[in-house]
Simulated scan of single mutants.
Amino acid sequence: MVPLNTVQALSARRHAPLGQIEAKEIAVVRVDAAQRADEPDRDWIGFAAFLSPDDLLKALRGWWRCDAASVAAGGVLPVTLSGYVVAVLTGLDRWEKNAEGRHAFPDARLAGYVTDLATPQVTLTSNTNGDRRLAELLLGTRLASRSGGAIAYVSTHTAS
């Protein structure tokens, strides 16, 4: 059971201020709680606040069916768990494509993540000013997205 005050705090959480992002549209990666991975390059898949920043970055990187150029153009990839931004990835300028038509972003950086969503407690992991600004802007906020896959696209309503 989740305590009532935690549920109330989450329901009152502010929505992501997407209008402050320069791109007209950004991608959002939707993940589950971390589960053990049977892969040679990572031990976990998904999000867990107890993971070290290095393990969390590995757990959040994946091979996705997406429009890689659109993901890169957005400049930021918020990671959501149940509609809340729990991590922020940047460094999306370069991508690779595998034989199944999925894309990965090998230079992705973990800009920051939450260690407690109810409060929220934020850990910034990048020294790049732009990364830190995006992480501070998005972490712990509500960000609804709809898609049939792990990657969704949301409008920022930014005029250009």
Rank of each mutant, 00 (worst) to 15 (best):
I45Q: 14
R36D: 10
R102K: 14
V71I: 10
N98C: 12
A111G: 02
T125D: 13
L60K: 09
T115D: 09
T125R: 14
R36I: 11
L110D: 11
L143T: 02
T125L: 13
V86F: 08
D55E: 08
K97R: 15
A104E: 01
F50D: 13
G83E: 09
K24P: 11
D116T: 04
S70P: 07
A34Y: 06
T119I: 10
A69G: 00
N129D: 15
I45L: 14
V88Q: 10
D32F: 05
A33I: 05
P120A: 15
T119R: 09
F105K: 00
L18Y: 05
D131F: 01
L57M: 07
N127W: 09
R133G: 06
A135R: 09
W95F: 13
D116S: 07
R132C: 04
A34S: 15
A27P: 04
P78K: 15
V114S: 15
V114C: 15
P17M: 07
A69N: 08
N98R: 14
L18A: 05
E96I: 02
L138G: 01
D38S: 09
G91P: 03
T80Q: 06
D107G: 01
L60F: 12
A59G: 02
V86Q: 09
D107N: 09
A108I: 06
V31S: 13
A48D: 15
D38F: 03
E96G: 01
S126M: 00
V76F: 05
A72D: 07
F50T: 13
L18M: 08
G91Y: 00
D41T: 12
V85M: 06
W95S: 15
L60A: 09
G83V: 02
D32C: 05
A87E: 04
T80L: 08
S52L: 13
W64E: 01
N98Y: 08
I45F: 12
K24E: 11
V79G: 02
T123Y: 08
A37F: 04
G75I: 00
S82F: 04
V86C: 12
